[in-house]
Nucleic acid binder design. Structure first.
Lengths: 230, 230
DNA sequence: ACCTGAACACCGTTCAAGT
DNA sequence: ACCTGAACACCGTTCAAGT
């Protein structure tokens, strides 16, 4: 008891343990007491490092968001922007068009969330007070503006892309259709057998994500052609 | 004590009270005990009507999903489908193109979720065992197939549209950027002042949703032109 | 069948006490 | 400053008992 010579905990150690616990057993089992015991410490000890449990969850989410590839946006130059419509013209390996950058980022974003499916419901509070979420928004926005998107439009594009990716994470990883054929028998005439198997479900989600991503990027490219500046 | 002559509870009464409670005070205060007390009943009484609290939440979500306008899909006929590309040609008021139907539905879907923002985090489990969620998926899918979308593609379109709408609900209603200018000062160079005010935030979300919806529908119309059958 | 109160095994958080 | 144990006001759920 009493204060240890060397601190037993740190914010990082707490966040790492929390993420490991959520990945292994789900968001439901993440309690301050369980987490503390996982760290070999007493429940209230956590409150020396975080004010509330919600702050811990927020930090976990932000850590995970930090894994998303946003380096790609640094490779979007004003030069690359001019070639956005035909991406064969990238002479240097570093040059990337805004839409290709969005594609790479969106896939990375989705992959990261897919690596931590149990955490997805915790995304709900939005990018609020999470540094990496803001860093991400900033990188997206900056590259779009450099590419010639008007600022107001660039804001919208960043937000709507996030809608799609987080929505796909929510819809894909946390359930989907139940693996229970009996439930469907004759009930929903248009819902085919393909919906029933979890494996097929994985593929549907993958295909839906890719199809949506391409539709979105095509639609945005059309708009870009009409509104670009610079 | 003991069994009342007339049942005090019903699934509907429980669901209604739960939704009212969530709308008024948030998802966090929805506990079986609090809900029971709201209904003038003892906590365990709920278990005569629902097996778990999660089932109650699921029923609440499904009830809300039932408010989404899917009647529009009934107005999508095979005839309307042939005019999808030019929507001025709807002679009868009942005929609607698949893309216009998706637009109406997406807006309704988002509006319904917007009317119950506190419930949005509970959407995470996906369309699992929720009749109205399945009814919705079925209506979307059916209208797309009638319009000439190949079945595999129609499945994807339904799913990806749901991604976008639920993602927008998640991102819009549950937080967004904090209303705290100090947090941003000099930290994120590209994030302008426009991000800071909650009011502007509402507008950004609205605009992002509309822009994303149009981009998506345009991109899908392009694809439709290439893959349609019938 | 449908409610009650008591009970079990939990929660998040506060706080005085220890070093 | 950073931990502990005790305590407070809660949880979801089970179950015997009542009618």
């Amino acid at each position: 008891m009493g204060r240890p010579r060397q601190p037993l905990l740190s914010r990082d150690r707490i966040v790492d343990a929390a993420l490991a616990l959520v990945d292994a057993e789900g968001l439901d089992v993440l309690s301050t007491r369980r987490l503390a015991s996982e760290l070999g410490v007493s429940g209230p000890a956590l409150y020396n490092h975080f004010a509330t449990k919600d702050e811990i969850v927020d930090a976990v989410v932000d850590t995970v968001l930090g894994e998303v590839d946003i380096a790609v946006f640094a490779r979007v130059s004003a030069d690359a922007a001019r070639d956005a419509a035909d991406d064969r013209s990238q002479d240097a390996a570093e040059a990337t068009s805004w839409d290709e950058a969005l594609r790479v980022w969106a896939r990375s974003y989705r992959a990261v969330l897919g690596a931590h499916p149990n955490l997805v419901p915790a995304l709900a509070p939005g990018p609020a007070r999470r540094p990496n979420a803001l860093r991400m928004a900033d990188a997206v926005f900056g590259s779009l503006v450099r590419s010639g998107w008007p600022r107001a439009q660039a804001t919208r594009v960043g937000v709507l892309m996030r809608y799609f990716v987080t929505g796909s994470a929510l819809g894909s990883f946390a359930g989907g259709f139940p693996d229970d054929a009996a439930l469907y028998a004759g009930e929903y005439p248009h819902l085919g057998q393909a919906h029933l198997l979890a494996d097929a479900q994985r593929e549907i989600n993958e295909n839906a994500f890719e199809a949506g991503l391409e539709a979105l990027l095509h639609g945005l490219a059309d708009r870009y052609a009409r509104v670009r500046v610079g």
